[in-house]
Structures are given as C-alpha cells and as structure tokens.
Amino acid sequence: MPDTERNLRASLISTQIVGMVMNRYIWQIGTIATLPAPSVTDLIAPTIQHYLADPLPPSLSDDSRSPGRPDRSSESRQPFSGPPPSR
C-alpha cells in the first residue's frame, strides 16, 4: 500500500476516533455520551474497519485527484483571514 493511501486511511480513522471522543467526553452531546462503551465500540467499529480494509473511492486514485480536476498542489494558498467584518 502506498504511503499516501496509508496516511489517508490513518487520517480518516483519526477523524472518527477524535470526533467520538469530542462528542462523548468533551461536549457530552446526545445519547452517545451515555451509551455503554461496548455499544460505542459496536457502532464505530464497522466504519473503522471500512477505512482499514475496503477499497477507497475511485475518485481518490491517481494521486487523490478526480478525473478532469486540475492539479492545484503547486498553487500558493492564502491563509484563512477569518470571517468578513460585520456590517
């Protein structure tokens, strides 16, 4: 497996775990905050397994670019300057 795919899969898995931790323990939002740990594992495990083993969407092939989409990796990006001022 190429490094880029490995890194992408690891990032996808981390979004699931960090999101669950934030929702369950930090924000304590909804039923997910009070579910027993085995139930949480049963809910999140299929998604993590999917990211580990299943094929990625075809749109991510060819260096993670969709067909017909220009490569903008060399373009300079402006840093986020925040929301526009209030009127």
Score class of each variant (00 low, 15 high):
71 D>P: 02
45 A>T: 07
75 E>W: 15
43 L>C: 08
49 Q>F: 05
48 I>W: 04
24 R>F: 00
54 D>C: 09
36 P>H: 10
82 G>V: 04
62 D>I: 03
40 V>G: 01
27 W>H: 11
53 A>G: 08
52 L>K: 15
56 L>R: 09
39 S>P: 00
48 I>H: 06
54 D>F: 08
71 D>Y: 02
63 D>S: 14
52 L>A: 09
19 G>T: 12
23 N>K: 15
27 W>R: 11
27 W>D: 05
76 S>D: 14
57 P>S: 02
46 P>S: 11
83 P>D: 11
79 P>Y: 06
2 P>I: 03
22 M>S: 06
68 G>H: 07
2 P>A: 13
68 G>A: 04
53 A>W: 06
23 N>R: 15
47 T>S: 11
56 L>F: 04
37 A>G: 05
73 S>V: 00
42 D>I: 04
44 I>E: 01
12 L>P: 02
65 R>K: 13
69 R>D: 05
28 Q>E: 15
69 R>C: 12
51 Y>C: 04
87 R>G: 05
61 S>P: 05
22 M>L: 11
5 E>N: 07
22 M>Q: 05
42 D>C: 10
12 L>T: 00
61 S>L: 15
63 D>R: 13
42 D>A: 15
57 P>G: 00
60 L>G: 00
24 R>M: 01
80 F>S: 01
31 T>Q: 14
22 M>N: 07
42 D>E: 13
78 Q>R: 13
33 A>W: 04
